[in-house]
Design a protein around this nucleic acid. Structure first.
Ligand SMILES: [Zn+2]
Length: 507
DNA sequence: CGGCTTTGACCTGCGC
DNA sequence: GCGCAGGTCAAAGCCG
């Protein structure tokens, strides 16, 4: 077991079975705030234990190596040992940073697979409920083949087997997807015979990078069939070309956006990544220009972000992130990346045709929201599923007339608000989650404040992200809610078309 | 001098 | 087909 700390976060990795080269990667807490105590346990082999109350400079105040070192050693020997331990610590910190990035990638894969599973189940439900003549097994097999190709680097046979396993779990109609994954399935997916996880994560990342290298970052690759580049949400026919659909689904994951609203006088918030501005445009109807940035931490990184001031309140900076980083991230940037990953998770319901129908405004108009119906609104303004983290401290909420402390979900054709504390049973609305930080200590993180220089909202984002990514019940609730929507309303949408003529806008 | 910003041109999708 | 709007490119300039 390895417990590594970096700054204010604790990384835990269990496992290390050298024989079968399997390592169990448990859910880690990237966002735990523990500014007073940092813990690092380098490894069982070294059996050393280090406690530190250091600051960011890494000054070690208390070191217990646990090596049962001779107490008769000289001062210089102790100094040498201390130096060695410190060197080891430094090395492990570096390694932990690397692992953190790799684990983030694993999390992304996890959510991607989760989304695929849901897509499969969704098709299954539609086939059962509707008049679709397509035999269900063919659809599922087609999906499986597509999924297997999507995760070729995991080994096709293995991934197919795992999808089988996941399908069985889902068929139980309990839809405890998260639970099933946490209890072993997802671990096995990433622990297949290719020895990919943990010790071989670097290989996996490199393979992933190759895959992501195919991102149509360049104009030449911007084909309409590629959802990454297309400005439209892909629409799928019910029964053909599952390969293309799977590809588009993956593209949708990459298109998942994270929008952060924060008060800042600076032109950009500090999020731990390095960005290069590549464009600026005056958006229609907006008094302030929109700036376009791309990540420069890796030459091939596809992540981009848009920065624009809120038209209603110029002190609010709206930063929208898009894409997944193709490189390990520094700790300061991990929370944002995790949030992006959460956005991909949110897309569980937004990238498939049935949900497309569910989000039909006609359907929404018919569906009485059991909570705050006046808060329901429709929007065609956002072409991509988006998560919004509202880190402003604005109880007036001039732009969003909504209660304090809540989630808002938004899909390309819809958006509506969910009461924060009882949204779980509410099966309406996915894709755009807005976490409002109006309450002063929401989730325990401090308010962002106006600053003349770049405002660091990372802590806030971390905490907000934790609400999305670290809480299995949240994801489970999402899945359960989606299921509820499907099971309860699918018949209403058999003839529904994706009507994007709704007019309400977010901003 | 390398990296970044600026900014007009260009590309693409979409609605009419 | 045309115009509009969003997004991107890339040359020129700026800056440390
Ligand atoms: Zn990046």
């Amino acid at each position: 077991m390895i417990m590594g700390k970096d700054n204010d976060r604790i990384l835990m990795i269990n496992g290390g079975d050298e024989d079968d080269k399997r390592v169990v990667v448990n859910e880690m807490n990237f966002f735990a705030h523990d500014d007073d105590h940092h813990h690092l346990k380098p490894s069982d082999q070294e059996r050393s234990r280090v406690e530190s109350t250091d600051d960011e400079q890494g000054i070690i105040l208390n070191v217990n190596t646990g090596l049962n070192l001779s107490t008769t050693s000289t001062t210089s020997e102790k100094s040498n040992e201390l130096a060695i331990v410190q060197a080891d610590l430094k090395e492990m910190n570096i390694e932990n940073q690397r692992l953190r990035g790799l684990l983030n990638q694993v999390n992304n894969d996890y959510r991607a697979l989760q989304m695929h599973l849901y897509a499969i189940m969704q098709r299954q439900q539609i086939s059962k409920a509707g008049n679709t003549p397509n035999p269900e097994p063919m659809m599922i097999n087609g999906e499986k083949a597509a999924v297997a190709r999507q995760f070729m680097d995991l080994g096709q046979a293995t991934i197919t087997e795992k999808v089988d396993s996941l399908e069985e779990t889902a068929r139980s109609r309990e839809f405890s997807i998260v639970e099933s994954m946490e209890t072993g399935k997802i671990k096995r997916i990433f622990n297949n015979g290719n020895e990919i996880v943990a010790l071989d994560l670097g290989k996996r990342i490199s393979e992933r990078s190759e895959e992501e290298g195919s991102y149509p970052d360049q104009r030449a690759a911007q084909q309409p069939s590629d959802g990454w580049c297309s400005n439209k949400v892909p629409r799928f026919n019910n029964s053909r070309d599952v390969d293309e659909q799977a590809s588009q689904t993956m593209s949708m994951i990459r298109k998942a956006r994270v929008s952060v609203r924060a008060r800042s006088e600076a032109s950009m918030i500090s999020d731990g990544c390095h960005w290069r501005k590549y464009g600026q445009k005056m958006a229609k109807g907006k008094p302030f220009p929109r700036a376009y940035y791309r990540c420069t931490m890796a030459s091939d990184c596809p992540v981009r972000k848009q920065v624009q001031r809120c038209s209603q309140d110029r002190t609010i900076l709206i930063t929208t992130y898009e894409g997944n980083h193709s490189h390990p991230l520094p700790p300061a940037a991990l929370s944002m990346a995790s949030t992006t990953s959460a956005a991909a998770s949110m897309m569980l319901s937004g990238s498939t045709p049935s949900i497309d129908g569910l989000m039909n405004p006609n359907f929404l108009a018919k569906s009485a929201l059991p909570f705050a119906p006046s808060l329901a609104s429709l929007s065609a303004s956002a072409p991509f599923p988006t998560i919004t983290l509202d880190l402003t401290n604005n109880p007036n909420a001039s732009e969003f007339q909504r209660p304090i402390g809540h989630f808002q979900f938004h899909f390309p054709s819809t958006n509506y608000n969910l009461p924060h504390h009882n949204f779980l049973p509410m099966p309406h609305g996915f894709g755009h989650a807005l976490i409002n930080n109006n309450q002063s200590n929401f989730l325990g993180f401090p308010n962002s404040q106006d600053q003349m220089h770049a405002t660091t909202v990372n802590d806030n984002i971390s905490a907000a992200s934790a609400a999305i990514t670290a809480d299995p019940s949240f994801t489970a609730a999402l899945v359960a809610a989606i299921t509820s929507v499907i099971n309860g309303n699918v018949h209403q949408n058999q003839n529904g078309h994706n009507n994007s003529t709704s007019s309400d806008k977010i901003e």
